[in-house]
């Protein structure tokens, strides 16, 4: 008997692959479900070596809630940015902000950087080589410290809970 960790190293990834496979064929028939399951088991097994330091999701439910929060923020962000773009350009206050990272693992930093890029008026531009600071460009910011505190409280703390405890 092989331990589940060996033949199912990334259960969430396997589930995601199955869903992707079914979406691609736009049907839910038994044959497709079985083949999707097979792919969901085989693909993580064969690509396991390429995953840097395999991320562990400690709280899947928190991850789902985080996804919903980000999705809602994306909608709000879009309306905000659209408003800023249509308004007078002279009024915008662009700034580079260096953001001190608390996260340590590459995967969670990647998630945070992607979230920052997708949400209100900010794009992550660079990560320092020692993974301790993130360079963010903001379209219109009045107070850098408030922006940093907002990102820390809304996105980084939940990510820390999900991946690193």
């Amino acid at each position: 008997m092989i331990a589940p960790r060996r033949w199912l190293p990334h259960p969430l990834l396997s589930l995601l692959l199955l869903i992707l496979w079914l979406l691609l064929f736009n049907t839910v028939s038994l044959a497709h479900v079985l083949f999707g399951l097979l792919l969901g088991i085989l693909v993580p097994l064969f690509t396991q070596r390429f995953w840097p330091g395999s991320p562990r999701v400690r709280r899947p439910l928190h991850l789902a809630r985080y996804g919903l929060v980000v999705l809602g923020d994306i909608l709000i962000a879009n309306v905000e940015v659209a408003w800023l773009i249509l308004g007078p350009v002279k009024k915008l206050r662009p700034a580079f902000v260096t953001y001190p990272l608390d996260l340590r693992e590459d995967f969670s930093i990647t998630l945070l950087a992607s979230t920052v890029s997708l949400t209100p008026g900010t794009v992550s531009a660079d990560v320092s080589a020692d993974r301790r600071t993130l360079l963010i460009h903001a379209l219109d910011v009045a107070d850098e410290a408030a922006l940093i505190a907002h990102i820390k409280q809304r996105y980084e703390t939940p990510l820390k809970e999900i991946f690193e405890c």
């Binding site: 206050r93 662009p94 700034a95 580079f96 260096t98 660079d126 320092s128 080589a129 600071t133």
Partner: peptide
Amino acid sequence: TRGEGTLPRGDVK
């Protein structure tokens, strides 16, 4: 634009 377009210690990777 406020702020510098470089990271501290200049270790832009």
